[in-house]
Nucleic acid binder design. Structure first.
Lengths: 205, 205
DNA sequence: GGTTAATTTAAACTCCTGTTTTAATCCAGC
DNA sequence: GCTGGATTAAAACAGGAGTTTAAATTAACC
């Protein structure tokens, strides 16, 4: 069946998001998917390829939307750009519930891993929409030098990615210390003003 | 010799910072240190304990300084708090060159790991200075609710930690794309205004 | 319906991991 | 100089990892 491939993809996606790439073995994946161990290598070639496939399935949706929107309008202002990203994630979430969380966790791991093969994969595979995003942000932040923008974008991504990565732990702490029930969107609501202010803050000196 | 323990510590520190905890095997460590494989378990008990020992050696210096300064003065304003952290890192750097970079990379990994045993270790071991830092930041940012401050602190840490974690890759990109030579302090110079603006940005709604 | 290709299966393979064991060696203190 | 605890050394251990193999099964096509 072509079902096997899909079951592997779903199983891997769930486990990757829960435990991370390295903490998830092929045996974990195939057991959960009720398929044979060797089928992963048969259908995907290697674990590395499977990781990229899981990544691509989620990121494609988001990047397609971003590319499409930026093809028509040019959002003005940092907030509009951040909203575009938020909207794209919500679109993914509508298509497959839970997928936006999964994607963010995977993204976090992709940028946190030492080797960086996933990071290269992303930058090559989605060069066009990423460049478009960079372009509108340059326009929205004319006061920043290219270097400053480069770093701030990565700081923003770091804040983003980190908050999702440590999501579970942080949510537990937040709940214990502040009796505060937090969901994914609640975190995003806190994140947006932070990133927006950080990007717009006046440059050094 | 008591030298063995120190050589292990130094070797592990270097390799952890370069490749990460999981990508560094005990054999890597002992080979580099020119000591026997079993000596790690003899002197430290386990790899997990070794990781904590490496962490503690660096974090102790920084936290001691922070605790001491906050015991005397109360810095007013976000910038002063950020400068205190920066100064503490520079102090560590003065004692052992390269150590501040190592510490930041280790911190990043500590907060990025899935299990989080290092995160718990840090929060227990350094509860007092961390609480003091939290206190002065509350005073410096009276407009933020406890919940908002909680999240922004973690966003800030994420930006911080991420930028150091992806340090090597980002520096290569920055150099290739912008002919920009960047060192550790150069990144910090970019980071400070971002975090400062992010922390001070007006809360949502 | 028989043939061929695609897929699934069970098992083994190879490599690497952290840890433990047991013997050898070192080095004080008497 | 000898004794006894501390340290180092070589080797093996036990378990888990990703991948490969070769046979069995299923599916598709003429």
């Amino acid at each position: 069946m072509a079902n096997t491939k899909l079951q592997i993809l779903n199983s891997a996606e769930t486990l990757f998001a829960e435990r991370g790439f390295n903490q998830t073995s092929m045996r974990d994946i195939t057991t959960r998917a009720n398929v044979n161990l060797a089928s992963v290598n048969y259908h995907f070639g290697s674990k590395k390829n499977l990781i990229q496939a899981v990544m691509a399935r989620n990121l494609d949706t988001v990047m397609d939307h971003i590319e499409q929107v930026l093809g028509h309008n040019t959002p003005s202002g940092v907030e509009a750009v951040l909203d575009l990203i938020g909207d794209s994630l919500q679109r993914l979430e509508a298509i497959r519930p839970g997928a936006s969380h999964v994607l963010l966790v995977l993204l976090g791991q992709a940028y946190a891993e030492t080797q960086g093969h996933l990071r290269r994969f992303i930058q090559q595979q989605y060069a066009k929409p990423l460049e478009a995003l960079h372009r509108v942000l340059r326009q929205a932040l004319p006061g920043l030098s290219p270097q400053a923008l480069f770093w701030r974008l990565h700081f923003a991504m770091g804040a983003f990615v980190f908050s999702v990565r440590a999501n579970q732990a942080l949510r537990e702490i937040a709940q214990a210390d502040y009796q505060q029930q937090v969901d994914e969107q609640g975190i995003f609501a806190h994140l947006k003003p932070f990133v927006q202010a950080g990007l717009q803050g006046k440059a050094k000196q």
